[in-house]
Nucleic acid binder design. Structure first.
Lengths: 156, 156
DNA sequence: CGCAATTCAATTGCGCACAACTAAATGACG
DNA sequence: CGTCATTTAGTTGTGCGCAATTGAATTGCG
């Protein structure tokens, strides 16, 4: 035979690892967001939190729990992050009166106002990818499927 | 008109952000790798370093610089990480005699031996994704294109 | 009601990512 | 040859991500 069998070793090659490409792409996004968000005084994860809050009707805010579900983050990450957002005057954190365990996060005036300046960000990002919108859409759908499969495998 | 024009605001929706899906997928991988690599005593970034070293012929090792290029990481990340790998006995770090600025990283016996036990990891991962090999291949290729485009945009 | 189990946020501890900086070695060039 | 710019690792500081734990509030159940 002229070709050797596909050794298990081949799958250990760095350039064969989907996770590496994914990780690299994620960090490449991070680099661009860092530049684009500098003006807004946000880090990328903080930006995600603000996106979630901006989606709430009339800026009613969200409990930390719900925020964590949306962003796939736990309180160990969110608590200090939210403190920093509070320190920079973009959100308010207050214990729920109905359930003293829960902390509700609301954007402040400044937090709501920031949305105006954020609308340009996704456009800049989309342009930078060089991908068509439906191509992005397709990629996003695949990634979501992937995440779901991986989460199931990790827990199961 | 029955439908409003696509507001810029729509692009601020969390579920429209490709970067969010990417980030979430990347962390979902992290969770699964954490489980699979626990036995090997490696974190996921440490595993990537070992993959890079295992690829070198006769385990000649790599200078930190080259390692950083392959993994898209700088010395601020690699230096402490390599120290930990050295502390767990998997790699050796030694100043190059030819160029005293450079530090060459080589797998130890234990580091080379670990490869045997690592071959199962990619298989487990592939199975967990629920994707066909060529589908993974396709996704990987798109992500690499994405990374390249983003890096260009960030620097340019 | 009273007590155990659960829920929720916060904290601690560790490792990674990255910017900014330092220090040492090397290379380029007049 | 000497000086200055560049290259290479390492260090410092900040923030994220996550496991494990704590403590307080709530819920469930006998």
């Amino acid at each position: 035979m002229t070709s050797t069998r596909p050794a298990a070793e081949d799958f250990l090659r760095l350039d064969r690892q989907i996770c590496f490409s994914l990780n690299a792409a994620s960090r490449a996004f991070g680099g661009l967001y860092r530049v684009l968000l500098k003006d807004l005084g946000l880090t990328y994860p903080q930006y995600l939190v603000m996106l979630a809050l901006w989606e709430e009707p009339e800026s009613e805010g969200l409990p930390v729990k719900r925020l964590g579900e949306r962003l796939r983050l736990d309180s160990g990450t969110l608590s200090p992050l939210l403190k920093r957002l509070e320190a920079s005057g973009l959100v308010r954190r207050e214990r729920s009166a109905r359930d003293e365990r829960s902390v509700n996060v609301t954007p402040t005036e400044a937090g709501v106002a920031l949305k105006e300046r954020a609308v340009e960000v996704p456009r800049s990002i989309a342009r930078a990818t060089g991908f068509e919108l439906d191509e992005i859409e397709d990629l996003r759908e695949r990634l979501n499927r992937l995440t779901e499969a991986l989460d199931t495998a990790t827990l199961g």
